[in-house]
Computed example of a mutant assay.
Amino acid sequence: MLLSYHARSAALSERNRRRIQREGVTMSGSIVWTEAEIQTLHQFPSNLQVHERLPHRTIKAIEHQRRKQSLSRKIHWWTAAEISKLRRMYPRCSKEEICATFPHATWNSIKHAALRHSFRREKPPYKPTGHPAIDQIRAKCYAIGWSLVDLDLEAKTRGYFAHGCLRSKGPNYKAIHRALNVLQGRISIEWVEER
């Protein structure tokens, strides 16, 4: 290509830039961003807050201008060391401890990173029901890694343990007996001595 062709294109581009600055409208008809509008972008972190103050700008236009101004949120790439630390902490540590260790990430992004790497949180123990026999059966299921649905399937108790065992009038001793047979347990009776 000839050098004159490039010189002509550069001159045309410069003329167009001057025309856009003079008229305040781009070649496609969009309004040029003013300094006041760019200051609004710097003042408010949320695109919706900016859109409330600048209703003539679309959300997409605001996002695009944020990227041009380098104001958009930076994407964090998890390093191998962070993944290793997350693997150790995620199953047992509290949500607050994990968020404090990874200040660059929200709890949702931490959960997504853990899910991506197949990390699971330890299941909390079952809540006590107030009935000692049922509480001990539930504690045994937790210790061997069974869910209450597994117990119902093995003991053929039709969802008694999984769906709230004490919602009826009282404990179902037949279901408790079946669960004890499956878990290989025994019932012992303790007599209270009268004084």
Rank of each mutant, 00 (worst) to 15 (best):
R87C: 04
R57N: 05
R57P: 03
L48A: 15
F44T: 03
E82Y: 11
S72H: 14
S13T: 12
E63N: 09
I38L: 13
I31N: 00
R195G: 14
T79K: 15
A179M: 05
R121K: 14
I98G: 00
V25Y: 10
L115H: 13
L153M: 14
P125R: 15
R120K: 15
E52H: 10
R22M: 08
F119A: 05
K123N: 04
A105L: 15
A36I: 03
I134L: 10
A80V: 15
V32D: 03
A179S: 12
S9Y: 09
I62E: 02
L166N: 09
R92I: 03
G29D: 05
M89N: 00
S30R: 04
F119D: 03
S168F: 11
I83V: 10
H177N: 06
R121L: 03
S9V: 14
K140L: 03
A113S: 14
S4Y: 11
I75A: 13
Q21L: 09
A139P: 01
D152T: 07
D135Y: 03
T101L: 01
M89Q: 02
P91Y: 08
P125A: 15
E37M: 11
G159S: 11
L86Q: 01
K174S: 11
K60D: 07
R158K: 15
P132L: 03
L3R: 12
H76L: 12
D152V: 07
L71R: 05
S70P: 01
E96I: 12
R121Q: 09
H163R: 10
T34Y: 05
R15P: 00
R92Y: 07
S4F: 07
I110A: 01
K60Q: 12
H42L: 13
H177Q: 08
R138A: 06
L48N: 15
H112V: 10
K174I: 06
E122V: 04
Y142L: 09
A100D: 11
N172V: 02
E14H: 05
F119M: 14
V32E: 01
G130K: 06
A105Y: 10
S9G: 05
R8H: 13
P132K: 05
R73D: 06
T106L: 12
S30M: 03
R178D: 08
P103K: 08
R66I: 01
E35P: 06
I187V: 08
D135H: 11
Q43C: 02
R121W: 02
A139D: 13
L153T: 13
I59C: 05
A114T: 05
A113I: 06
K127I: 05
T101Y: 00
P125F: 08
R92T: 08
M27P: 02
K127A: 14
N181E: 14
A36Y: 04
K169F: 13
K60M: 06
H6A: 15
C99L: 05
R15W: 04
K169P: 04
F44G: 01
A175Y: 04
P45M: 05
I144E: 09
G170V: 04
P171N: 01
G185P: 02
R158A: 15
L183T: 06
G145Q: 10
H117G: 03
